[in-house]
């Protein structure tokens, strides 16, 4: 059946594209900070592990939950202030990890279609150099243990 063959080929292609990306980039402790339902933005945190033998470069992030998702870093200015800067890409060297954590690098979800409530999980995809995607679920947590 040509149609069945086509479907099979399509699934095989998707798997072929998806598996290597996951084999290289894995995720530890993903979470989104719960915010009031009227909030226009929320932040996400995770540790990104590159288990492969080549560097992994993240070129973008997206989620159906937000109209605009960015990687941000926090920069200190001389007067004791801090500001967020847009990271256009993030490289994770082979065999290393990069943490996105409160007060440092983080994901910023803007133009939220609907603010996810605590207990919900939001799928977030990291677009990698080379065209592959690595996706994982971020649970929405009202208060992280790391908040101390």
């Amino acid at each position: 059946m040509p149609r069945a063959c086509f479907k099979f080929a399509l699934v095989a292609a998707v798997v072929a594209l998806a598996v290597p990306a996951h084999a290289e980039l894995t995720f530890s402790d993903p979470w989104l900070r719960a915010v009031p339902p009227v909030s226009p933005a929320m932040a996400g945190y995770v540790t990104l592990n590159n288990d492969g033998e080549e560097p992994v470069t993240i070129t973008g992030v997206s989620t159906p939950a937000a109209g605009h998702t960015m990687l941000h870093d926090m920069e200190s200015t001389g007067d004791g202030s801090r500001r967020m800067v847009h990271l256009h890409h993030l490289e994770i060297p082979a065999g290393e990890s990069v943490s996105l954590a409160p007060g440092g690098k983080h994901l910023m979800l803007m133009k939220l279609t609907e603010v996810p409530a605590p207990g919900e999980t939001v799928e977030i995809c990291f677009h990698l150099k080379g065209g592959k995607d690595a996706c994982t679920g971020f649970p929405v947590i009202r208060q992280s243990q790391t908040d101390g």
Binding site: R33, V35, P40, A43, H72, R82, G103, H106, M108, G148
Partner: peptide
């Protein structure tokens, strides 16, 4: 400010 995604909600939570 409430449109701040990282520091301000963290401070409010603390």
């Amino acid at each position: 400010y409430t449109h701040c995604p990282d520091i301000c909600p963290a401070v409010l939570a603390r």
